[in-house]
Structures are given as structure tokens and as C-alpha cells.
Write a protein that binds this DNA or RNA. Structure first.
Length: 753
DNA sequence: CATTGTGTAAAT
DNA sequence: TATTTACAC
């Protein structure tokens, strides 16, 4: 009988899902005749049949291992079907698989916070979903369990001597402690998810369910393929007592080895006698503390709501005799890689509206003849400019810089006459170029897509960041008010936005709004304290320009978008603590369709929001930019030196809001401390929703919502072609559109409220 | 001659 | 900040 355990309220339910021999499954879906056969996926490479990067379970039975050569696999398992990944001609081989992985993430992200841990692994925080299920359905009856849930493996169940309890029994226990009940709910949810993944993508996966990431990950691999495993809290210590240290994520390398050598420790459990201080002494404060917790099965890592990669890179190895020894050949490959990288960047820009800022080059260089034939490494970086030629040029100079560090004198580049070799005798065995520091750029604010950004699943792939706008309303006290034109005439607006207004003090408040889906806004934080207003909140110039006019005397809220790289996010976390401002009560800010203040004149009437996501440096469109993207963003173009301009745009937005509310005279100015402010904000929001509803009825359209899965081809076809294209591109990564009974556009896009 | 190619994170 | 190192699949 399980012992009731006092659970702190923050028990989490974390799942780790792992696609089974994923590349193989992708190939099998393409070619169903390969199903059920021994299959290996090899990376193109004529040498010994290429290297295997995935092996089907049928082939594993014959002893075929990943990282074998194709030829060796064939020897062990003559029946094996070896599928080659496309390599050359612009076809980045792994991208195909990455896209397939995205399909899976799309299904999973319906359930909770989702983190793409690798091309074929996903972490899921389903704490909320599990708690909800607990309230709704617990305790479960055996009959109600799905087959997949019944097949769940529960670690530590049928111990020796005891009467065997089935997994179903365990899941349905009435009197289990809350932590176990939550895991049971988690298991049932994950079973459903895995079935959904199978139904919608044809891929099978394995899963682990536990109270933290480390446990979930540890567990997901215990029963493969296509099975799920739960690790109850009560079994953790038992497991860690016998588990080889290597199995723990992060201990598979040198650290694990030195742990074993230094301390004679072979399992995590054997770390228990060591004090945290001792471990920190040996391995540093950070690692030491981490180890101490791991030994106890504890791990506070959060599931990051991130499904997009933070960098792109491509690389090419030139093993042994293939090593490059002339600048000409190096340039050739730098060119290939540059092209491929730019293609990835184009794709990212198109699909996610993101751009990278940093270009990095790595090269492994083998220096011969000289004192040591030791292999060395060099890495250089510089700002990334878009365009294949620019990337090539930059990557070239990075390479030369690296080589100069590496070779004595200036001999590095010149080939020796006669011999094909360069005078320095270098040989390049690996080149890798990467694009880092990727972050969102503003989508065209006039773009129809921004109207259609659904409030749910903000972390879904294939969707542009939709947190681009602050809604500004309420009253603003501004020195400019005396100059406020009396008329609402748009013609007057232009003169209203004169330059001298910019230097006027503006006090105001960005009004929070709400949403029906609080769960998708979990990463929202408010920064609103007077005390903080002059604090060093480090942020990008874009944020700086927004906050400064408001910051001194007023309160404002910041909204974190789904991307960890989001400007706002960094602004909030940039205080050095790395943490969000958790002591502040989260406040919702709704984004709404809006025209950019600098780009509109007649629409000023409806301009109640301002674009705050402009990262000036990014706005300048490079040559490599797709023309349709270019046209969407054209009106946002400004360059780094135009900080001032952007700042002005923000202030203009504020000024306008001031004017609008002056004319309407609805709401009094709001000031106060955090304690008094938050309730007020909430009340304001209520009113705002009401007025917004009215005005949207008046104007005919304002906020739209849709459910992605409900969009249907028939209706899409009724939209204007440009809108169709834009939507399709935004939906590209998701599963095919479903047929539906509904046939009219208005059925699909009911006006919110 | 030969674990490739991608990606993340932390230490320095 | 830029670079290096470690780790994982």
C-alpha cells in the first residue's frame, strides 16, 4: 500500500517523448514496403557504404548498430535495406527529418508546454492537463483506460514476492498519493498523445513520464519501441541506486568518467554520501549542486516552451586523405556551405519571420610538417549579413583570420609552387558554418497573418510571433495635450505628430487585456513598479526606446512571446538574475490587429496599438530577402541609425492614444503602486473588453480568432489569393487541412466577442 | 587515413 | 564578447 506522501503543491508531471529510430520511420512512411523490415539509414558517403545514422528494430536484432558502416551492417545482416539520405545539391539531408519532427511537435503542443530537445525528442510539461484530468476523472476505472494506457509500464511494480499488480491496476488505484495520481493522469494523457501522433503522422514513439525532466528522459528509453514508462517518485531512489552513472543525461561523458575515477562512484545513488559542499568543491558550484540533486532524483529544469531551433549550421568533414590543402578547395566548400546556410535562413525568415545575427565559422585544421602534427581547432565569428555572396565573403575572411592565428607568418594562403600544398602545410579536415542569435523580426503589421494569430498555442511551429503589439489606451497626461487638435480629422493627424512632441514628458499606462486561454499566456510577466522604473533593465534599443518615455512616471507591462530570444523576454531577464520577475503579478496584454503608426495616415482612427517589436538593426532588408517578405515589411524599413525614428513612432502612438481618450473622456488617469494597480488594471480590462466589443461591431471587424485545425481548403479557397498564400505559408508545417462541413468564411472566423 | 552533421549549454 | 569545451543523438 503506497504511503501517503506530503506533496508540495508544485509537483510537476513531465513527459519525454522519443521517436523510435526516427529517420527509419520517416523513410518507411515514404516507402511503406520497407515497414517491418531491417532497415538502416546511411549518410551519403561512398566510403564503406556510408555511416548509419538510424537502424530499425528488426535490424538491431541482427546486431546492427548505429554508427556502423553500411558495408559492415550488410555483412552482419544481409537482408538489411540501406536507405541513403540525399546529400548533395542544395538538399540538406537532415532538414527532411526535421520537418517530419515538426509534424509531431504540432500534435503534441496541443497538450501543454512543449520543448523540442532534438530532432526526434520532445519534453512536455503536462502538469496542468494532469491536474485537470485528476479533478475530472479520478479515480479511473479499468474499463475506461485506452489500450495504450493499459500497456504503460510502471517501474517498481511487481516486486519480488508481492502479488503482481498490473499497470492498469496501478493507474486506477483510488488511494494513491497525489503525486502518483498525477503521474497516472500523465500516463493516460501521454497515451492519448502517442495515439494521436500515430494517427496523424504515422510515427510511433516511446515516452517516459515522471516528476522532472531528468526522470522523464531517463525513463523514456526503458521500454522501446512504442511503449511508455512511468517512474513513480517512490521508486526513484531504488532506480538511482543501481543505474549506471552514464545513463543520466549529462554524465555520459567526461564528467561521468571523472566522477567514477575521483570518487569511485558507479551509480547516482553512490553519490548520496557526498555533501553538496564537497561536490561543489570538486566540480564547481554549479555542477556540484546539480550532482547533489541528481543523486536524489531532483532536477528543477523547466520545460522550455521552445519549438524552434536557436541556431542553424552546416558542416562538412574531410576525413583523412580528403583533407583540403588549398585555398581553392576550401573556397569551393565554403561556397557550398554558405549557400546551404542561406537557404536555411531564407526558410526561417519565411516561416517564422526570424533572422540570425551572428555568423560563426569552425574549422578543424591539421598542421603537418611542423613541430606537432596535432589537430587544432579554430573558431571565429562576425555579424551575419544576409545573402549568399555576403556570407561567403564573410566566411572567407573568418577562415583567413583563423588560419592566420594558426599558421606562422603570412604563408598560410599561398600555395607552394609545384606541390599542390600550401606553404604552411595545413590541411582542413572539417568546416562548419553557423548562424546564431536568431530572433524574431516584426512581421508586416499590415499582414493579414497578424490578424489571424490565434491566441492558443503560441508556441506552435509555423506561426509567426504574434506578440508584436502593445495596446495603448487609457488616458495619457502629456504636455502635448494643449496642442491636441480638436478635430478627429485624419488630415490633422500629420501635423499633430510634429517632432517637438517627442521631447514632451509622457505619462501613461499600457492597458492590459485578457484572453480566454490563460494557459497559453503562462510566460507573461509584468514590470510595473515605480521602484523599477529607473532600474537598470537591460534591454535592446527597441525596448529602451519604448520604455523610456513611459518608464519614469508610469507603469507598463511587458509581454513575453513564445521565443526565448524574444526582445521582451530578454528585457525581463536581463537584470542579471536570469529570472523573470516572478514577484510581480502576471498581467495579460492582448495583441490586436493594428496599423503601424508610421505607415498609416487615414487609419489612425483605428490605431490603438503600437508596434513594439522593432529591432532596428533587423529591419533593413538584405538582398537575400524574399521579395514577398520584403513587400510586407517595406514600410517598416529603417536602419540602425534610425533608432530615433522608431522611438518617435512609439511616442506618436502614445500621443495618439492620448488624443483619442481625450476625445472620448471615458477613463480617468491611473497611477498607483503595484498593489493597487493590478486590481485596477483588471477592472480596466473588463471595461476595455466591453468597449472593444462594441467598437468592433461598429467597425465590422477587429479581433479574429480561428482554430488552426479547423481551417479547411474549401473556405481557404474563397479568400483572396495573397491571403491564401500567406496563410498556407504560415500553416506549412502543420498537418494537411481537413475537409469540413462548413463552407463559408464567416463560419470560420467569427469575430471575437 | 575515417562517427557525420546539427544543435544546446556552460565555462572561460 | 568571443571563443572554447562538453554533451547528445
Amino acid at each position: 500500500m503506497p504511503v501517503a506522501r506530503p506533496d508540495s503543491g508544485d509537483t510537476r508531471v513531465i513527459a519525454h517523448l522519443d521517436l523510435d529510430c526516427f529517420y527509419v520511420q520517416v523513410e518507411q512512411r515514404k516507402r511503406p514496403e520497407l515497414r517491418g523490415k531491417p532497415v538502416g539509414v546511411v549518410q551519403y558517403n561512398p566510403w564503406k557504404g556510408g555511416g548509419l545514422i538510424a537502424v530499425s528494430y528488426e535490424a538491431r536484432k541482427c546486431g546492427v548498430l548505429r554508427c556502423m558502416r553500411g558495408d559492415d551492417a550488410k555483412k552482419i545482416c544481409p537482408d538489411i535495406e540501406l536507405v541513403k539520405t540525399p546529400w548533395a545539391d542544395g538538399h540538406a539531408p537532415l532538414n527532411w527529418y526535421r520537418d517530419a519532427g515538426t509534424e509531431v511537435v504540432t500534435v503534441l503542443s496541443r497538450a501543454g508546454v512543449c520543448e523540442r530537445a532534438s530532432i526526434d525528442e520532445v519534453y512536455l510539461d503536462i502538469t496542468e492537463a494532469a491536474a485537470a484530468r485528476l479533478l475530472k476523472d479520478f479515480p479511473f476505472t479499468i474499463d475506461s483506460l485506452s489500450d495504450e494506457a493499459r500497456k504503460t509500464r510502471i517501474l517498481g511494480l511487481a516486486e519480488d514476492g508481492e502479488i503482481a499488480m498490473t499497470a492498469a491496476d496501478w493507474l486506477c488505484q483510488k488511494d494513491s498519493p497525489r503525486c502518483d495520481a498525477l503521474l497516472a493522469c500523465g500516463a493516460i494523457i501521454v497515451a492519448e498523445l502517442r495515439e494521436a501522433v500515430l494517427a496523424e503522422t504515422q510515427f510511433t514513439c516511446s515516452a517516459g513520464i515522471g516528476h522532472n525532466k531528468m526522470l522523464a528522459k531517463l525513463t523514456s528509453g526503458m521500454h522501446k519501441p512504442a511503449q511508455q514508462t512511468v517512474i513513480p517518485a517512490s521508486y526513484v531512489s531504488t532506480l538511482l541506486a543501481s543505474l549506471p552513472l552514464k545513463k543520466i543525461g549529462g554524465l555520459g561523458g567526461k564528467l561521468g568518467k571523472s566522477l567514477q575515477e575521483d570518487l569511485g562512484v558507479k551509480t547516482p545513488g553512490e553519490l548520496l554520501p557526498f555533501s553538496q559542499l564537497k561536490l561543489q568543491e570538486l566540480y564547481g558550484a554549479n555542477t556540484g549542486a546539480w550532482l547533489w540533486h541528481i543523486a536524489r532524483g531532483k532536477n528543477g529544469d523547466e520545460v522550455q516552451g521552445r519549438v524552434l531551433t536557436k541556431s542553424h549550421s552546416c558542416s562538412r568533414a574531410f576525413p583523412g586523405p580528403k583533407a583540403l590543402t588549398s585555398m581553392t578547395s576550401v573556397m569551393h566548400w565554403l561556397g557550398e556551405l554558405s549557400d546551404r546556410l542561406q537557404e536555411q535562413l531564407d526558410l526561417d525568415l519565411e516561416m517564422h519571420n526570424r533572422k540570425a545575427k551572428l555568423l560563426v565559422l569552425h574549422a578543424a585544421v591539421h598542421l603537418r610538417g611542423a613541430s606537432q602534427p596535432a589537430k587544432k581547432f579554430s573558431s571565429k565569428s562576425c555579424p551575419l549579413r544576409y545573402g549568399k555572396e555576403k556570407i561567403l565573403a564573410d566566411v572567407r575572411s573568418l577562415f583567413e583570420r583563423g588560419l592566420r592565428d594558426f599558421c606562422p607568418l603570412n604563408k598560410s594562403l599561398s600555395p607552394v609552387k609545384g606541390s599542390g600544398r600550401n606553404s604552411c602545410n595545413w590541411a582542413v579536415t572539417l568546416i562548419s558554418i553557423g548562424a546564431n542569435d536568431i530572433s524574431a523580426i516584426p512581421t508586416g503589421v499590415n499582414s493579414i497573418t497578424s490578424f489571424f494569430a490565434a491566441p492558443t498555442h503560441s508556441h506552435l511551429p509555423g506561426r509567426r510571433s504574434r506578440v508584436e503589439h502593445f495596446q495603448v489606451s487609457e488616458e495619457f497626461e502629456t504636455g502635448a495635450s494643449s496642442r491636441t487638435p480638436s478635430s478627429n480629422d485624419p488630415e490633422n493627424m500629420t501635423s499633430f505628430f510634429s517632432d517637438d512632441i517627442i521631447n514632451d514628458e509622457v505619462t501613461g499606462i499600457l492597458q492590459p487585456c485578457s484572453s480566454e486561454e490563460p494557459a497559453s499566456y503562462r510566460n507573461l510577466f509584468a514590470v510595473d513598479d515605480d521602484k523599477n522604473s529607473d532600474a537598470d533593465i537591460k534591454c535592446t534599443p527597441a525596448i529602451e526606446s519604448i520604455s523610456s518615455p513611459v518608464r519614469r512616471k508610469s507603469h507598463f507591462q511587458l509581454f513575453e512571446s513564445d521565443s526565448r530570444n524574444s526582445v521582451l523576454n530578454r528585457c525581463i531577464r536581463g537584470d542579471g538574475s536570469g529570472n523573470p520577475c516572478e514577484d510581480l503579478e502576471p498581467t495579460l496584454i492582448q495583441c490586436s490587429p493594428v496599423e503601424h503608426p508610421t505607415s498609416v495616415s487615414s487609419e489612425l482612427e483605428t490605431c490603438s496599438a503600437i508596434n513594439i517589436n522593432s529591432q532596428h538593426a533587423d529591419l533593413k532588408l538584405e538582398d537575400g530577402c524574399r521579395s514577398d517578405v520584403r513587400s510586407n515589411t517595406r514600410e517598416l524599413e529603417c536602419s540602425r541609425e534610425a533608432d530615433e525614428k522608431s522611438s518617435r513612432a512609439v511616442q506618436l502612438g502614445l500621443a495618439f492614444a492620448s488624443k483619442a481618450s481625450t476625445s472620448e473622456r471615458q477613463n480617468p488617469p491611473i497611477t498607483g503602486t503595484k498593489a493597487t494597480l493590478v486590481p485596477k488594471l483588471k477592472e480596466l480590462w473588463q471595461r476595455n473588453v466591453a468597449t472593444q466589443a462594441q467598437s468592433s461591431v461598429k467597425r465590422g471587424a477587429s479581433n479574429w480568432e480561428y482554430k488552426q485545425e479547423e481551417i479547411d481548403e474549401v473556405v481557404l479557397a474563397q479568400l483572396p489569393v495573397e491571403i491564401q498564400q500567406e496563410l498556407r505559408s504560415s500553416l506549412k508545417l502543420n498537418r494537411p487541412l481537413r475537409p469540413s462541413k462548413r463552407t463559408s468564411i464567416s463560419d470560420f472566423f467569427p469575430s471575437a466577442k
